[in-house]
Nucleic acid binder design. Structure first.
Lengths: 178, 178
DNA sequence: TAAAAATACTCCATAGGTATTTTAT
DNA sequence: ATAAAATACCTATGGAGTATTTTTA
């Protein structure tokens, strides 16, 4: 059977972007860290697969055809989506095995926090969420300063405060409720 | 040197989509027309590359992890963009070497049409645009019926009418001006 | 235990490279 | 004449397959 059922390849998208940007196959060599030959092959294969010409070639380099011009943003979309996937994975990896200690006084701890924590835990099951119950606002601030908590819930105007020394790579989703 | 600098592969995106949809590696075989082994390899490689687990595996099949759930729409975006690229290419190919004959009466033909045609020709240089000048509206309709024109410009309320028998694959961009 | 996924192993198509030739200005 | 792209040819990575073993509800 035939290998690689994918007609269009990702490196072809990268090549398209780079050559379009550099307006030259040769100059795209540096950006792609690929030989001129490979870039030529890649674009040629892409053009053959699509049955169209993507670039006008000349001594002064390569220039996008009108079709190439319309295809370019879609190729960019693909690479952006790929980046997004890697970002999501990095974030998730950063969260693996992490823990968050939340300091809050009793009234908050018993009202909306359980639901919020449940929701969070459903999204990030590998993160241990623990609660440091406090009787007064001062105790919350104390817990943060003594690094017995990573996240503290306080009254307005300082509703949410957080320490930078948590044991997790948590970089967003600092849950708080109005 | 190493082959394939792309860490993430398109067929892995397809596999992710299919397995997520089928909630099973085995059932995705039909949809992907790929062996169970290959699908397993593809997902495993993707998970290894991203450093995360995309599916919970069990006897009843496979279910997306929270990260997998967040990555899924991006994978879909990639495939949608690919489709769009092929669509653009198909359209451009259909236009290759085509021609459009426009029937219009003199006043229109000399006022806004030249600019419109120039713009169109810049976008689709391989298409021959010719003008069939008419003195009266009835002549335009006649030219269309006798297939001496592919596109006719008439007065409101029937501003634009077009024949289905053109010598080009033109399927959109029926240019008209208010 | 049975259905599903993972592994072991093989194969060859193809991405990628070097060296050279062709093309366009 | 000369810079750029295309082509020829080669190598070996990794995608895909069949057969089998390992999981897990």
């Amino acid at each position: 059977m035939s290998r690689s059922r994918d007609k269009l390849k990702l490196f072809q998208m990268r090549a398209l972007l780079a050559v379009a940007e550099c307006r030259s196959f040769s100059r795209a060599v540096d950006e792609l860290e690929l030989s001129q030959s490979s870039i030529s092959h890649a674009i040629a294969a892409l053009e053959a697969e699509l049955g169209i010409s993507l670039f006008f070639r000349g001594r002064q380099g390569a220039q996008l055809t009108p079709v190439g011009e319309r295809i370019l943003p879609q190729a960019r979309n693909i690479l952006v989506a790929l980046e997004a996937i890697e970002k999501e994975a990095d974030l998730a990896r950063g969260l693996e095995g992490g823990s968050v200690r939340i300091a809050a006084f009793r009234s908050l701890a018993t009202s909306f926090l359980p639901a919020t924590i449940a929701h969070f835990s459903a999204q990030f099951p590998s993160i241990t969420v623990s609660l440091v119950e406090c009787s007064y606002q001062e105790e919350v601030e104390q817990a943060l300063q003594e690094e017995r908590a990573d996240l503290g819930l306080l009254h307005l105007p300082t509703l949410v405060n957080y320490s930078q020394h948590g044991t997790t790579g948590l970089r967003r989703n600092h849950y708080a409720s109005g």
